[in-house]
């Protein structure tokens, strides 16, 4: 019995540091965002006294649906394109010769670790209206001299895909590594076509990797702020830009909080649900999570 209590004490002792830190600096601020959404704003950028539903009502702003829709579809499109490219890549990497694997892996990891501002900047140089890509496309007659490659939704999408592709490849590769490829051959021996074996045997076999990949692309994409800021045009705003504008330009913290609260709910509720399901179904935890 004494053993149980000392065990319990020890558990608390080694859990406390991270729990306290994250409660004070993660949980409390997140709750604060929700609380401030119900505060009035003062014209001089402060947070007023008392409670109000005014800010929540302002979320019915007729301009928001367009921004939310743009945010969602850009994030979804980014996720779909990233997965579409990542699955064949991961398949190839997992089946590559042992000698090549570390090289391929390193080639994928390097962009993942490169400062993302620099990667965005590289595209700005490349897509310059009188830059290299434009000249090439002009030469082969794919664009008109007056077409602009940057400052539109396509450019934002392109750079989003570029930024998150390696996030998608890594977990799928981790899953494909563990996949038993003889199953594919077996399926084909039993008469399945190559496509069918791929769809019905390989994809289900790496489903955990696919889910992780989809989440690590979709969620950060939802919160994008810098990419639409640098690559987007006058109509390229996403929710992240609106939040930044409310904080840094409009001096309206409650309104920014309300927007942030909506985004938080959109992200966290499904996530917590997934974690809970996973943890209850399977005591071994998501390994890919750290990736």
């Amino acid at each position: 019995m004494a053993d149980r209590t000392s065990e319990r004490k020890q558990e608390w002792l080694i859990s406390a540091p991270s729990m306290v830190w994250l409660t004070v600096l993660f949980l409390a601020p997140t709750l604060l965002v929700f609380a401030i959404s119900f505060r009035p704003s003062t014209p001089f950028g402060g947070v007023g006294e008392g409670w109000t539903l005014q800010t929540i009502r302002e979320l019915a702003n007729p301009n928001y649906p367009a921004i939310i829709w743009r945010t969602v579809w850009l994030s979804l499109a980014t996720t779909v394109i990233c997965l579409g490219l990542a699955v064949p890549c991961a398949y190839f990497m997992a089946r590559a010769r042992a000698r090549w694997k570390p090289v391929l892996l390193m080639l994928v990891i390097i962009p993942f670790w490169t400062n993302f501002l620099i990667r965005i900047f590289a595209w700005k140089v490349l897509l310059h209206p009188e830059g290299l890509v434009k000249k090439l496309l002009l030469a082969v007659g794919l664009v008109e001299p007056r077409d602009i490659l940057m400052y539109n939704e396509n450019a934002v999408l392109l750079v989003l895909v570029y930024s998150y592709l390696s996030f998608a490849i890594l977990p799928i590769y981790a899953a494909a590594e563990k996949f038993d490829f003889s199953l594919l051959e077996a399926a084909m021996d039993l008469g399945a076509t190559r496509l069918r074996a791929f769809l019905q045997v390989f994809l289900p076999g790496i489903s955990r990797g696919l889910i992780t990949a989809a989440l690590v692309v979709f969620i950060p994409a939802l919160g994008s702020y810098v990419i639409p800021d640098l690559m987007g045009g006058p109509s390229g705003e996403m929710i992240g830009n609106k939040i930044a504008q409310r904080v840094f330009v409009d001096r309206n913290l409650p309104h920014a909080s309300a927007l942030a609260a909506v985004l938080t709910l959109a992200v966290v509720v499904p996530m917590v649900a997934v974690i809970f399901l996973q943890r209850q179904k399977k005591p071994a935890r998501a390994k890919e999570a750290g990736g």
């Binding site: 600096l25 965002v33 969620i219 939802l222 919160g223 939040i243 909080s257 992200v267």
Partner: peptide, 11 residues
């Protein structure tokens, strides 16, 4: 899984 902008703003 929380987007950066949310963490920055809440802090």
């Amino acid at each position: 899984v929380v987007p950066d902008i949310l963490m920055g703003m809440s802090l």
